[in-house]
Amino acid sequence: MARQMKTANKYKEMDILPVMSLMTVLIPVLLSMSAFQKLAIVDINLPERSEISRDSEPPPPDDNALNLTVAISKDEHQGYIEIWARGGSLPKIFFREMWTFRCRSDNDTITHDPRTVNKENPPKCQDGRTLDPDRFQFSIETIHLWALHKESEEDPGRILMSVYSKNDSAYVDGNNDFVTSLEAIRPGSTVATLAANSARRLACGQSAPGVEDVCSGGQLAATLRPRSAYDELARLLMALHSRFIDSPDADNITIVADDDTAFDKLVGVMDRARDSGFYKIQLAKLAAGE
C-alpha cells in the first residue's frame, strides 16, 4: 500500500475515544476501591491480670513511681472521672452525660440528657418527629460529658462553662486555667489551648505561626459553652505529666472503668491520655460486686 502523503496544513484530531473508554472503566473501579472514611487504631498494652478493687487503697507506690490511674465511674447522682497518682487522689471531675442525636428527617442535631429519654419517651427532633423508640441509642452521634462544679456530695452541681475556639479546642490562660468569659478572647490577647507550646496571640483576619485568626466573616468565632470533662481531664493530666516527668513510669497510665461504661468514653479518655504524653495505656477492671 502506498503511503499517503500528508497534506501540510490539514490538522487532524487525535482519536481519543479509546482513551475515554479506558477512563470510564478505570474511574468506577477506583471509586469502588477508595475509602471515604479514614480509620486509625489505638494501641493498648494488655490488661493487668490482677484486678483493682475500688475500696482498697491502690498498691503502695515506690517513692518515685507515679502509678497514674484514671477511673471512669459513677455514684447515684452523677458520673465522675477520678485520678489517682502517687497513691493519692485528685478531686473527682463530675460530669453530666449528654447524648447528641442526628435526626434522619431533617439532618439536624438534638441533645438530650439520657435520663429524660427512654422507650416511652424517645428523643424528639426539631421538626417534631421522634426517633425509633427501640433503636434510638444507636443513632447517638456524640456522647458529651459536661463538667460540673459541686460544693458537696448532695449538690446537684453547676455546669461549668468555657470558651471554645472555632476548631473546638478549649482556651486556657497563662495560669493554665480555663477561659470562662468571652471578654478575654479578643484580637491582641494571648491565650493557649490544651496542647504543648500552644500559646498564641489572637488576631482578626490574619493567621501566621503563633498568631490565630479568631474571626470568621468579621465576627468573633469563639463560643461559650459547657466545658467538656475530657478537657478538664486533659488539663490535669498535662500538669501531672510535666510535673512528674522524671518518674520511671512517667509515660504509663492505667484506665479503669465500670462494666457499663460505653467504649466511646474510653476512647475519649485514651485520646486525652495520649495527647497529654501518657502513651503507654493499660486497661484494668474494677472488681465486681462492690
Partner: peptide
C-alpha cells in the same frame, strides 16, 4: 467495637485475645 459497647464486653474480648 461499636461505640456503645460496654467496657465489660470489651475487657473480656481483650483478655481472651491476650
Amino acid at each position: 467495637l461499636d461505640k456503645n459497647t460496654y467496657y465489660d464486653i470489651m475487657f473480656k474480648v481483650m483478655a481472651t485475645c491476650g
